[in-house]
């Protein structure tokens, strides 16, 4: 039981990280109609920058803040230099162009920081475990991750639903020509949205860094998970991304934790041990297939179209 609660919390925490990535992806897709494979690279760049600044300043928080600003800057430069010419072209062009960017980022990071990878260590007060329920202890830092992402999600909601910029973003998603015809600088808006997405991805990378490892290509596998989240949640929908990331996080984590044991109970021990891990890694894809069969538009399709 305790193990179950702990694994559920782990699942929520993974889901929250996925949400940060998926929200940026789905915003960028919903508004600019752009498929961005380099989104995972921004996750990686965010982690590297935060680790570097944390090492320079000696402070975890300062590392995060400086890293976030730097990732935002990287995102904006990237948009202006490389992404802007891709708008309005077909999706294959996006895939190829951003695939090129991904190769570029992987090797430039290896060139600058070396192939060895980095660690971002936590301040000592974060290492403690807190009692979440009577008898259930959970690492402080993972709780912080969940709360911080919830706060970011809340801010994002306020930004998109309650501010003027958010209104423009929503308007741009439903009819970009009309927005620019009304005198809104759509180019600037796009840059802002891309920067926002980059910052979200970078933030996800840097808060994930202390519990994983900062290395080349760290953003790629989680990027594909984020794609699955978007497909399940419905492309262009932030609410869908939020619900789907928690579902995917929970299923993936719980499946990995419990399915191998279950398989051993039902099958022979050796068959269960070899099938269990393979099966558990398939779970979320089966969920995705199920969603596609019954609701091809995703669980919470964006209202446009």
């Amino acid at each position: 039981m305790l193990y179950l609660i702990e694994q559920c919390l782990n699942g929520v925490q993974l889901g929250m990280l996925l949400f940060l990535l998926a929200a940026g992806l789905t915003l960028i897709f919903g508004i600019m109609d752009l498929v961005n494979l380099a989104h995972g690279s921004l996750y990686m760049v965010g982690a590297y920058l935060a680790a570097t600044f944390a090492a320079l300043t000696g402070s975890f928080v300062a590392g995060l803040v400086l890293g976030l600003i730097a990732t935002l800057a990287v995102g904006i430069v990237l948009e202006v230099v490389a992404i802007r010419p891709l708008y309005g072209r077909d999706h294959l062009d996006h895939v190829l162009g951003t695939f090129g960017l991904l190769l570029f980022f992987n090797d430039i990071v290896r060139w600058i920081w070396g192939p060895a990878g980095m660690t971002l260590s936590l301040p000592s007060q974060m290492l403690a475990a807190v009692q979440v329920l009577p008898g259930v202890f959970y690492p402080m830092y993972r709780i912080v991750i969940i709360l911080a992402t919830l706060a970011v999600g809340g801010l994002l909601y306020v930004l998109v639903m309650r501010t003027r910029i958010g209104m423009l973003i929503r308007a741009g998603a439903s009819n970009r020509e009309m927005v620019s015809a009304l005198g809104i600088n759509i180019t600037l808006l796009y840059t802002l949205v891309f920067g926002l997405g980059a910052a979200l991805a970078g933030f996800a990378g840097m808060i994930a860094a202390p519990i994983s490892f900062v290395q080349i290509g760290m953003g790629e596998n989680i990027l594909i998970l984020a794609f699955v989240v978007i497909i399940i949640g419905g492309i262009g929908s932030i609410r869908g991304a939020f619900v789907a990331s928690i579902i995917v996080g929970l299923i993936d984590t719980l499946g990995r934790a419990f399915l191998p044991d279950l398989a051993r109970n039902f099958l022979s021990y050796s068959a269960g041990s070899s099938l269990g891990p393979a099966l558990s890694s398939m779970l979320i894809y089966m969920l995705m297939a199920g969603v596609l069969v019954f609701r091809p538009e995703g669980l919470f399709p964006a209202s446009r179209k």
Binding site: R89, G97, G100, L103, F104, N106, D107, I108, R110
Partner: peptide, 16 residues
């Protein structure tokens, strides 16, 4: 060792 630094932008160039 870092072929992606050349290859990546080249791909973008082909696309554009």
């Amino acid at each position: 060792e870092y072929s992606g630094i050349i290859l990546g932008p080249m791909l973008l160039g082909v696309v554009l």
